[in-house]
């Protein structure tokens, strides 16, 4: 661990921070789409083995920020990053960082489920194959089964692994995408509104899953649904116009926020 990181930046400083170590340390992060600045001077620490939720109105930059954590914005032309993002103390934007290796360690689940047009089995096998993580068929099958179990979808698909992933329902597709991300055993899991396209029951299953997964993973979830943030997260960060307004323990942020803006947002006065 680095000692150079600043403590958890939160203006609700009267509450103690999480007890787990800092996994992701962000300092002075600015982000630009062309000339347009989307994130301004973000500084926040995200801790290991807890769920951190990013909330805020549409266009506040919460998804953009999430995507800077695995450098997913690199594939968008004419974008630019300033500042530092440290994962386990290493700057992921330094020239020595292997972005392919980074994304292997920082998995991601997207808002719109995006299974590959392949079989259910091959969807999960893909990451194992390209990263050479299974030495033989038996190991491959074992890892796929474990990933599907971890994503709480094994019972539904175990008899139809060779069927196309497109035959699954929306909620099942999203859990398959989670299984696909888990298969390569990342350390961090980024989730960009993973349940926004799902019905309440499918949403509940995803939320239960998130709760179980934090034992093994550091989870960052973007959501526009405040109840969801309250239900699943330990820490919450509130964003507004590309800036971090406030972050801290979820319960505190929802019941006794330090900023008037946060209070107005969480009580539904705007957004």
């Amino acid at each position: 661990m680095t000692t150079s990181l600043r403590p958890l930046v939160t203006r609700t400083s009267d509450s103690p921070g999480p007890t787990t170590p800092v996994k992701i340390g962000v300092t002075g992060l600015n982000f630009f789409y062309g000339q347009k600045q989307a994130l301004t001077d973000l500084t926040i620490n995200l801790h290991a083995n807890i769920v951190t939720a990013f909330i805020g109105p549409s266009g506040c930059g919460k998804s953009t920020f999430l995507r800077t954590l695995n450098r997913m914005n690199d594939i968008i032309p004419s974008t630019r990053v300033e500042g530092r993002v440290l994962i386990d103390g290493e700057d992921i934007y330094s020239s020595s960082t292997d972005v392919v290796d980074l994304r292997r360690r920082v998995g991601m689940v997207f808002q719109k489920s995006n299974p590959f047009p392949k079989s259910i089995f091959e969807n999960v096998a893909y990451g194992l194959r390209i990263n050479g993580l299974a030495r033989n068929r038996g190991e491959m099958e074992g890892r796929i089964e474990n990933s599907l179990k971890a994503a709480a979808i094994w019972d539904e698909v175990k008899d139809r692994l060779t069927e196309s992933a497109q035959t699954l329902s929306g909620g099942q597709q999203q859990r398959l995408c989670i299984a696909r991300a888990l298969a390569i055993q990342p350390e961090i899991l980024l989730m960009d509104e993973p349940a926004s396209a799902l019905d309440p029951i499918a949403t509940q299953r995803i939320e239960e899953l998130i709760y179980q997964l934090k034992v093994d993973y550091t989870i960052v979830i973007v959501t526009h649904n405040m109840q969801q943030a309250a239900r699943v997260s330990d820490q919450t960060a509130f964003f507004w116009l590309g800036q971090l307004v406030e972050s801290g323990p979820t319960e505190k942020l929802f019941t006794n926020p330090a900023e008037k803006l946060t209070e107005d947002y969480v009580t539904g006065r705007f957004g």
């Binding site: 695995n70 997913m72 594939i75 392919v100 290796d101 994304r103 292997r104 998995g107 991601m108 997207f110 719109k112 995006n114 299974p115 590959f116 047009p117 392949k118 893909y126 990451g127 390209i130 990263n131 995408c177 696909r180 991300a181 390569i184």
Partner: peptide, 23 residues
């Protein structure tokens, strides 16, 4: 979204192109 899904799993550009986009 499919390309992003592939990149997010640690695919190189060539793996993304040949193993996800072309199929």
């Amino acid at each position: 979204g499919l390309r992003e899904g592939a990149y997010a799993l640690g695919s190189t550009r060539m793996q993304t192109a040949l193993r996800v986009v072309v199929p």
